[in-house]
Design a protein around this nucleic acid. Structure first.
Lengths: 335, 335
DNA sequence: TTGTAAGCGTTATCAA
DNA sequence: TTGATAACGCTTACAA
């Protein structure tokens, strides 16, 4: 149970250094010796301890992934992207859920530091900028997704949320809508803010006077969407379209509209954001703005690997352009 | 950067052993000394190396979680359950996706062994029983979810799939259906087999003659459900109800029925399995059999912690009873 | 081409 | 109550 390199060395009749050499294909070693070592290792079922290796190499081949909640349909795809890229390079990932709780995030970062991860990826981090700063100061590579971080040597993988919102609202405006409401997401997040900004910008460029009564501030949940709709549909004149902070919110709006006896898209048009699996499957199928979640995760991990490999070259940022996916929750306004 | 226990000792003017004592609250240490050490540690931003600690303690405070695919809506909840329980006990979890590929699973297990995880949880593992056997032989605690494993000292967290299928089919039979088809999941999995068995048993107890033409074997995907429906709806007489391997399959069937111009539930009743978020949100809302995914993950992790703590007491198994959730895809048969 | 030995950063045993 | 010091299992000079 738990053979060590010493045991293998003994069994093969060589020194431990030789065993290490053949196992890491480093340095010269005679083919015969090599064969003997491999045989002995196999016989003993030897699996080298990454723990011991990490101690001397000062690198653990692990990275930390910090996300709000794996249960939220947007995160599995991004997680998978990270995992695939990590695993393809021999890395293993620690998964941490924070529920957007700064205290939880701090605790997770602490654990990752203790475990000496080679890097960490934050997805939609909270306002604990200090946590990233600490990591950076310690020389731990950091990549941030879904969040801008100024004046810190980290890479960023972003999606142009403002542009996405613009796309969504222009679509609505092009359809003839002018009473357009926004069921906003968590405005403490940059993501929420940018989508709101895009919404405002679209209305402005179309010459539609802003009406703060048509902006509901909630969070990114289904329930929030339901409540948003209850409030927004009570405005007079009633909005004919609602642009939502994300797909979950849009689903909530859809259900509330249904409950209020409104037909979608005839009485009300709805646009979401993200394009999670649900969006295509629900009926009417949701018109939404697609984010390339898997690719974002994959790229984030690749950027992290670059940094781990020492290719710094300053703080990089990659901006993905979202894409409008028109399905069945939007329709032209009968005039 | 990267202060060590030595640095802290030096700064506090004590020996390293003392620092270790205060940091681990083990052994007596004078309050004043303690304060000085804590101060020095804080000043230096000292974070103990779990890597070094692991080497001597022979335990890493990490566990491995092996699942097929985090992108499949059933797994996030179970993952979250595991994570929450782990994190509450100071453990960190390595996430591994196998795509049900035995080779990938072997590679993941290898990585987890190298990293000397304190235990591993398999969710719906492939047929690589040898992998678990290896782990068990090495003394690594193992808990298996969604899969029976005989003659191996592992704990099991299961849901009574047969009973769930029985529940679903009896519901259909009670509604007056007798031409009931089954869009089965992956039959190489025990889960798929058990649900099929429950389906057969329900028909048998109702005295309905089995018709193998009404059983379609696919896997647990949306696409598989769509194909299943195309085949099954071509049978004559056409089945009036389809019990599906899981919710994703049911959604596929729902879409295919829609495409074929069939009204659900009027022309066709559908029952799924799992009760993922989608099930409640789709229209018509899906009648399904609920599995307590979060609780299953949580319990699995708790059982693993018990084993890690040395409470073996033989192979335990916990069987969750699933629950029928009747929504809108099932209706009585007009006679 | 191979072996010896000095760490890597902790914990834990023994003395003091 | 505290300090040396020997592990823990591996990598990596440095010698041989």
């Amino acid at each position: 149970m738990g053979a060590t390199i010493r045991d293998v060395a003994r069994a093969a009749g060589v020194g431990q250094a030789t065993v290490s050499r053949v196992l890491n294909s480093s340095g010269y070693v005679h083919p015969d010796t090599r064969a003997r070592v491999l045989q002995a290792a196999a016989d003993l079922g030897f699996v080298p301890s990454q723990t011991a290796r990490s101690l001397v190499r000062k690198s653990t081949a692990t990275v930390g992934l910090i996300i709000p909640d794996i249960t939220n349909p947007f995160f599995p795809a991004i997680t998978r992207g990270v995992e695939d890229a990590a695993s393809a390079s021999g890395y293993t990932v620690f998964l941490c859920n924070t529920d957007n709780d700064p205290a939880m995030e701090a605790q997770d970062v602490r654990k990752l530091r203790e475990r000496r991860v080679d890097g960490v990826i934050f997805v939609g981090a909270t306002d604990r900028r200090d946590l990233m700063a600490t990591l950076v100061a310690e020389g731990v590579p950091v990549v941030v997704t879904d969040r801008q971080v100024a004046d810190l040597d980290v890479d960023m993988v972003l999606v142009d949320n403002r542009a996405g919102a613009l796309l969504a609202c222009r679509h609505l405006i092009g359809l003839g809508h002018s009473r357009i409401a926004h069921a906003a997401g968590h405005l403490a997040t940059r993501t929420g803010q940018d989508r709101l900004a895009g919404y405002r910008e679209a209305l402005a460029e179309a010459g539609i006077a802003p009406d703060e009564g048509l902006v509901y501030t909630g969070d990114f949940t289904l329930e929030s969407g339901y409540q948003a709709a209850e409030v927004l549909l009570g405005r007079t004149p009633r909005p004919t379209a609602i642009f939502c902070g994300n797909d979950l919110v849009a689903l909530g709006v859809l259900r509330a509209a249904e409950a209020a006896g409104l037909a979608v898209p005839d009485d009300l048009s709805i646009v979401g954001f993200d394009d999670i699996l649900l969006a295509a499957l629900v009926r009417p199928a949701l018109t939404t703005v697609r984010q390339p979640a898997y690719s974002m995760g994959e790229l984030a991990m690749r950027m992290l690997l670059d940094r781990i490999a020492g290719e710094t070259g300053g703080s990089r940022r990659h901006l993905f352009q979202p894409e409008l996916v028109v399905r069945s929750t939007t329709r032209g306004r009968a005039r």
